[in-house]
Design a protein around this nucleic acid. Structure first.
Lengths: 152, 152
DNA sequence: CTATAATTTAGAATAATTCAAAAAACTGTT
DNA sequence: AACAGTTTTTTGAATTATTCTAAATTATAG
């Protein structure tokens, strides 16, 4: 390897695209450096698709995509991204953590049988009334989970 | 012990109260038999107080109340009660399961720093608009979690 | 290119929960 | 009150998700 990876990563690839630079910029903008595993995961997580992933699933996908990251790094990265506001953590199932690549205002359908999550755009829900937050606190977020089950 | 426990349990105690019979009736009404550990936990869970408990906390309370149940039984019982509709399971924190003794229509404040949960009566919240459930499904429940954090 | 700091890694450790097999308790029937 | 059949509980091991730790690697600034 004659050329170092920092360069290779930022330059246009053989198709003329610059596959990593967007991710690197986003990472930089939230104060995260761009080591290769983090960038690799960033590319999978921050490509604009709205997805709900567990750490295990992301790890498996990374392996499949020939991005060799350890599970510990997957966990670290998910939490770093969440802290930086690039992801959101959702609690629906008590035993697994789901990370949501959609950080816009939105809510979820939760399919009780399958554990599947589906986004509900924020503008399709209207909360007409909500109590004041307890004294000394401020509302960070309102999460709505609509639990549905198959009619059968 | 000359008298068997089944009787003792159903009869008025020395204060003239019948501490177990209500619980036993409720269990029976949902198809659960009244073995002693289950009744003991039922007494702690179904006494009308609105509480949010983890399995560990309930186990500790039971020990403290001289109701010797194993942790496995606590888990079994919590799930049986939940399946029977006597409790509700809440997912807010990914790592712990909370069981809610309040099964009426209501929602929650979640204090992010402490993990504490506070009830919001169902009539203090109004949802003006909600999308149709996905085809082939029916809404089981709408859970709203208002995440708050200390102003400091 | 080197020194320093940050990051990743593998694997051990932890925490919550579930499972499995044996022991105990409950039920309905005599 | 005793019996047989079933349910429930128990203990401790097993599992699963996640976190931690120390060493090795990689990135950054000078």
């Amino acid at each position: 390897m004659t050329q170092d990876m920092t360069q290779e990563i930022n330059n246009p690839d053989s198709n003329g695209r610059r596959p990593y630079s967007d991710v690197i910029e986003r990472l930089r903008s939230v104060g995260l450096r761009p080591p290769r595993p983090r960038v690799g995961l960033g590319k999978m997580l921050l490509d604009g698709r709205d997805r709900h992933l567990t750490a295990e699933k992301l790890h498996a996908e990374a392996q499949a995509a020939a991005i060799p990251v350890s599970l510990a790094t997957v966990y670290n990265t998910l939490h770093q991204f969440t802290d930086a506001g690039l992801l959101r953590e959702i609690a629906v199932d008590a035993s697994r953590s789901y990370f949501d690549t959609n950080t816009a205002d939105h809510h979820h359908f939760f399919f009780e049988e399958t554990g599947y999550l589906e986004d509900i755009d924020g503008d399709r829900v209207a909360i007409a009334e909500l109590p004041e937050p307890p004294a000394g606190t401020r509302i960070e977020r309102v999460d709505i989970v609509v639990r549905v089950s198959g009619k059968t």
